Simulated scan of single mutants.
Amino acid sequence: MSIGKSPEDDRPSQTSAPSTDDGPSVGRALQQARIAAGLTVDEVSQSTRVRGPIVHAIEADDFSRCGGDVYARGHIRTLARAVGLDPEPLLARYGAEHGGPAAPTPATPLFEAERIRSEPRRPNWTAAMVAAIVAVIAFVGYTVVSGGDDDGGTQQAAEGATPATSKPATKPSPSKKPATKPDPSDSAIAAAPQDKVTVKLNAADGRSWILAKDHNGRKMFDGVLERGQSKTFQDTTKIDLVLGDAGAIQLYVNGKQIEDEFQPGQVERLSYTKGDPEVG
């Protein structure tokens, strides 16, 4: 007697999709790297200009808020660099899980980031003051020289001397060396005592989030350094730094400039002592 098939045998077999669980997901990998770097979502958002809600969604492997496949890949690449990961393996995993390479999309802004208005260029009041001082000195010198010439001419006229037909020789104006701007490291050198470690940060090429701690781990500064601003820190033993965008910062340690070529958007964790400059 043959046994017929059970109704359950006619149901389609429930086989799961091929597993790519050979490591953490894209979002989980980004979240773990951010936590390991000691950064919050707000700090990553400030350094990458990717809005906080989008960062949260990507770390939860929700790419629907990115606005498309191309934008999602761009966000993954930017966030990976900000937390110190190689973006290529993450992009490959994303492609395997979401249908291969990105499809072309209309030309629109790549990232859904906050648009920050460019700040108006501030007037250089130091140069203006130097120019005004030079003009005043030149005017006073010219007045003194002109006054001496007028006295001589009056004396000659009183004595009945005939005026010379040739042009009088003009006296050279008092030489004035052009004012030169001090080297940006001058203030750092002057403020670098031998018994302390001195670190100066200058946001010459853009804005950057900065975290500075002393040798006891206490915060000396935690905030954003706007373009053109600078900060100087001193401690008796050691200063620890985290630079959210190291490529925007000029760094001076104990009066000497650190010449490392940090890339824009690169997060750097540095530590300096009295014996430096050396990269921490």
Results as ranks from 00 to 15, higher is better:
S2Y: 14
G4A: 14
G4Q: 03
K5H: 04
S6E: 03
E8S: 08
E8T: 09
P12E: 11
Q14R: 08
A17H: 06
S19T: 06
S19N: 08
P24L: 12
V26T: 11
G27L: 07
L30H: 01
L39R: 00
L39Y: 02
T40H: 02
V41S: 05
S45P: 03
Q46S: 10
I58V: 15
S64P: 08
Y71E: 10
Y71A: 12
G74D: 12
G74R: 14
H75E: 01
H75D: 05
T78S: 04
R81Y: 04
P87W: 00
P89M: 11
L91I: 11
G95D: 15
A96F: 04
A102L: 06
P104C: 08
P106W: 09
P109T: 07
L110I: 09
I116T: 14
P120F: 00
R121K: 10
R122N: 08
P123T: 04
P123Q: 06
T126F: 12
A138G: 11
F139L: 15
G148C: 13
E159I: 13
A164P: 12
P174G: 10
P174C: 09
S187V: 14
I189L: 12
A190L: 12
V197C: 03
N202Y: 14
G206E: 02
L211T: 10
L211N: 10
K219S: 15
M220S: 00
V224S: 00
E226G: 13
E226I: 10
G228N: 11
Q229N: 09
Y252R: 06
V253E: 03
I258H: 11
E259P: 02
D260H: 15
F262R: 01
P264H: 11
Q266Y: 01
R269C: 00
R269W: 00
S271Q: 11
V279M: 10
